[in-house]
Nucleic acid binder design. Structure first.
Lengths: 226, 226
DNA sequence: TTCAATGTTACCAAATTGTTAACCCCCTTG
DNA sequence: CAAGGGGGTTAACAATTTGGTAACATTGAA
């Protein structure tokens, strides 16, 4: 999605339009443009861009009003809106946010800063959507969001490694993980820790929940079973 | 609400009253009118208009005084007040805002401009309400509008960062925020501040409200719990 | 039985957080 | 302008938790 993301640029200055269009297309985005607010509303409604770069100062319909209009369109509720503003118009920062903007960027625009800003926005957007990780296996509930483990209606405390270890095993019931795999997934690639450390953590987990949940496959590793 | 919004017009010039009344009724608003400040106070108290258009220059009681009186009436706290002023009376712009007005419009009045201004105000009003900037969690009430925190019926003072931090945590009960996330959300994207700063602010918050409200997840971050 | 693999425990080092106080900056006040 | 206060940040030290390892006990398959 990040690759094919659609971006709409709205500015009355053809030079800026061309400048931004060139830089964004070069990055692989699909770019639309509009010279004023009214036109922008039509284009936005038609192509539902993921991101809208909106100049504040424009003839016909200023950016803030345009933004407010866009926010009324539910089809555009997922779109991010960034204001482009001259340094002097500081008031627009406040007005812009209350109009429904997600961010603002000061002119003159530096391509590097703009692109990193755009990437950050798409990153956050994608991340937010992929969240919601809750494992519910009857007696045992593991919530990554609140970092809680509930066993037989009892809230238990798990230290970080314990939690990550249990979470990894529990999210693949039946699958056997070797100690190396566990170290790689939970500890990270560049860690030098003895395998036996895993054993100790497994033991701590078994101490808290039903020890039968985690089975030992001698010579291979561990697996979670419900 | 926007359709049936109640508007009170106050002006000593019958021509203007009629002119505005005609234009506003045409748009579907319910319109009341009053020829002077004293009358306006009575009508306002009776019908609780959503919007009050107030002429500044009036006999008996001028608009600014009228506005101040209206602001004393708590039943009218939700009403928006717009001043109608002749171009020359620029002083009234300043005096008007300090008297509690929300906006002002210069005479002569163009119906188009007035209507779009009115619509903009209702839009903003509805939006503020729909954002529901008030968190009520029993003992703890956090009001984003007034920037107030009320704990066990006690109004507490929170500095900006403290407030934003608490608000963010409290608006996602149970969710664990890493220090990075908190810095990103509360401080902004382009700030370089040590993580430990977060700790200090957390401590200050815990000093004011029930320390159990904010739990530490070692190695991960903080979360709010009711 | 034998022995390598795993379980268990205790201990210590390292990581993380709590707490306090100092500092800087900005604004208000006298 | 000096003085004072609030807000925000950081450093420094204390308190706490976590993670890792060694050492020893136990298990289970050949």
């Amino acid at each position: 999605m990040q690759e094919n993301a659609k971006i709409l640029i709205v500015d009355d200055d053809p030079d800026i339009l061309e400048f931004l269009e060139y830089n964004l297309k070069k990055e692989g985005y699909t770019v639309y443009s509009a010279p004023n607010g009214k036109e922008a509303l039509k284009v936005a409604d038609k192509y539902l861009p993921d991101l809208i770069l909106l100049d504040v100062m424009m003839p016909e319909m200023d950016g803030i009003t345009t933004c407010q209009e866009m926010r009324k369109n539910k089809k555009l509720s997922e779109s991010h809106i960034i204001f482009l503003t001259a340094r002097i118009e500081e008031y627009s920062e406040i007005a812009g946010f209350s109009a429904g903007a997600d961010d603002y960027i000061n002119k003159p625009i530096k391509p590097g800063a703009l692109l990193s800003r755009i990437k950050a926005i798409f990153k956050r957007k994608n991340k937010d959507e992929s969240e919601s990780t809750l494992l519910d296996m009857g007696d045992l509930i593991i919530d990554r969001n609140s970092y809680e483990v509930i066993y037989k209606s009892q809230k238990l405390h798990f230290a970080r490694k314990e939690f990550e270890l249990l979470y990894l095993l529990a999210s693949h019931p039946g699958k056997v993980f070797s100690r190396d795999k566990l170290l790689e997934q939970v500890w990270g690639n560049e860690v030098f820790v003895g395998d036996r450390t895993v054993d100790v953590h497994i033991r701590k987990i078994r101490e808290k929940i039903d020890p039968e949940s985690i089975k030992t496959i001698k010579g291979i590793g561990y697996k979670f079973e419900s």
